[in-house]
Amino acid sequence: MLNRRIVPCLDVRDGQVVKGVRFRDHVVVGGIVELALRYRDEGADELVFYDITASPEGRRVDRDWVERVAREIDIPFCVAGGIRSVGDAREVLHAGADKVSINSPALERPALVGEIADAFGVQCVVVGIDSLRDDDGEWRVRQYTGDPSKTKALRKRTLDWIDEVQALGAGEIVLNCMGTDGVRRGYDIEQLREARQRCRVPLVASGGAGTSHHFFEVFREADVDAALAASVFHSGEIAIPVLKRELRARGIEVRA
């Protein structure tokens, strides 16, 4: 049986791992390779490195640390942020990343999803979606969320975009529910369940983890393949070995 994955997300800014609340007020958490090794040792199933400044500033992910991570760790990792072309994706994949995640650039030019899938296979194309519920009750996509002053609310409905990116060649979708992100009151089960209905490819829940119970809940209630979190892991509030023991005891299959 395919195990559910626990995925720490490392927001990278200027070569260090940072964390902010609701995408604001970033503080330094630690070094990239040092944290990658810590999470590998603790039993993380995969890592996501997200260069939160790359997309709004129109610059690319610096490749040096990707290669350093690839040399050191023996679990898969994905790199997100500022990947705008097949060339950008190639650079990151050849440096040793297993997947690339595209978010704002896919909204700028959806064909990019298919171009990367054609060049390297759908398995390495992750589409990240930042989603927030509007006053009319619809979830809609946000763009350039790395910088609050540049964040744009789009008319595109999140669920439509999920259909669209799968048709284009997305091999996995990370749905970041901005309404629950950073406040640790649990994942957005309602939205993730809706997304699951639309999603044939693996779905990764993001935004809202505060307790081990939230992980149990999102796997059981929203049937997601993986759950991503940052601050609860960085702060040590949730230790991955303890989390996995609890999930296993409650019938969720996770890697030992």
């Binding site: 395919l2 994955r5 398995q123 044939r200 693996p202 993986a226």
Partner: peptide
């Protein structure tokens, strides 16, 4: 059934 088959399996 999710395709691609992605993740840790026995």
């Amino acid at each position: 059934l999710r395709v691609p088959h992605m993740g840790w399996n026995g």
